[in-house]
Simulated scan of single mutants.
Amino acid sequence: MNELVPVAPAAPVSPLRQRLIDDMNMRHFSRETQRNYIRDVGRFATFLGRPPDTATGEDLRRFQIEQREGGMPVPTMNSIVAALRFFFTHTLDRPDLARRLVRMKQIRKLPVVLSRDEVARLLGATTCLKHQAALSVAYSAGLRVGEVSMLKVRDVDSERMLLRVERGKGGQYRNAMLPADLLTLLRHWWKLGCEQGVMHRDGWLFPGQHALKPISTKQIHRVVAEAAQAAGIAKRVSPHTLRHSFATHLLEDGVDIRVIQALLGHAKLENTAFYTKVATRTVRAVTSPLDKLGMFMPSEAAPPG
């Protein structure tokens, strides 16, 4: 009976929207970024009540004022600014309008970072080898959750001890580190995955429920949350926490900050330098000028503590 029910044709894509999509494809934007940009430009068009290519500087001003007065979170407002700036600069060739958009100042909170012991407990609390391997990649190579999800078997370069990240943020390509212990773990996962019939040389490194699709970022989030709970970790943990922990632990070990910047794929050094605020071992290693004065030497009679 289903084949007799007429299927409604898909709504045609407007030329303006197709042009935006083409511009994003040309710059290798990820599917998630494209989805967000289309949504945000559509949000502005809804506010405007007419095609967004007819907007004026005053329209943009009113739009941002309404967002702020409506209590929209600053990160969301800034994401919309990024989408509209791209749209007006590249799709419409109207950089004069893009300059009218104001990026809101955001107070950046210190990231949650796990201790090395907590990371070990988290990885040990996973329920299967695939999940343990995926979270180990996130921590040992400092990858974003989307980068872990989109890894393919061929991205593991055991000769050069590198992971090729081909679908990084903004469509950027980079090499990430492949520690020896991680390679051993991935080989165990490869062997088990082949026995289960879900691993293929041209396939995903971490297949989803269907072997032809990668594990979803939503599932990785769920795996991290469940493992943290099982490990008795009270901190609010996400896959990005493992990336934060990777950067912080490298910094505490004395790795040059520019090397960490390259490993993380940060465009700006200031984003990497932010981890100095949570590198507690680095702070503890510094001798205070007060201690060098020697004025308050502990008494021999003082109790230990």
Score class of each variant (00 low, 15 high):
Val112Thr: 14
Cys194Met: 12
Leu20Asp: 06
Lys235Val: 03
Leu101Asn: 04
Thr56Trp: 05
Met104Glu: 09
Ala234Leu: 10
His188Gly: 05
Leu242Cys: 04
Leu269Asn: 13
Gly124Trp: 10
Cys128Ser: 13
Val259Asn: 06
Phe296Trp: 11
Met24Asn: 05
Val223Lys: 02
Pro304Lys: 15
Leu251Met: 09
Leu151Ile: 07
Asn271Leu: 05
Ala279Cys: 00
Ile38Tyr: 07
Val112Glu: 13
Gly70Met: 04
Asp291Gln: 11
Arg39Met: 10
Ile260Gly: 02
Ser149Pro: 01
Thr127Ala: 10
Leu163Glu: 12
Leu101Tyr: 05
Ile65Arg: 06
Ala55Arg: 08
Leu60His: 09
Leu290Lys: 08
Pro304His: 14
Ala267Tyr: 04
Lys169Ala: 11
Pro298Arg: 12
Ile65Cys: 00
Leu123Glu: 02
Leu293Asp: 00
Leu205Glu: 08
Ser216Trp: 06
Pro304Ser: 13
Pro207Met: 11
Gly232Trp: 07
Val255Lys: 11
Glu69Pro: 01
Leu114Glu: 08
Gly42Asn: 11
Ala133Trp: 04
Arg99Pro: 01
Asp202Arg: 14
Ala176His: 00
Ser115Gln: 01
Gly265Val: 02
Thr241Leu: 03
Asn175Ser: 14
Arg17Asp: 06
Thr46Tyr: 10
Pro179Arg: 07
Ala82Val: 15
Tyr37Cys: 07
Asn2Pro: 00
Glu252Thr: 05
Phe47Pro: 01
Arg61Phe: 14
Phe44Ala: 09
Thr46His: 12
Pro239Leu: 12
Ala267Glu: 15
Lys277Arg: 13
Lys235Asn: 05
Met297Asp: 13
Leu183Pro: 02
Thr126Leu: 12
Pro239Arg: 10
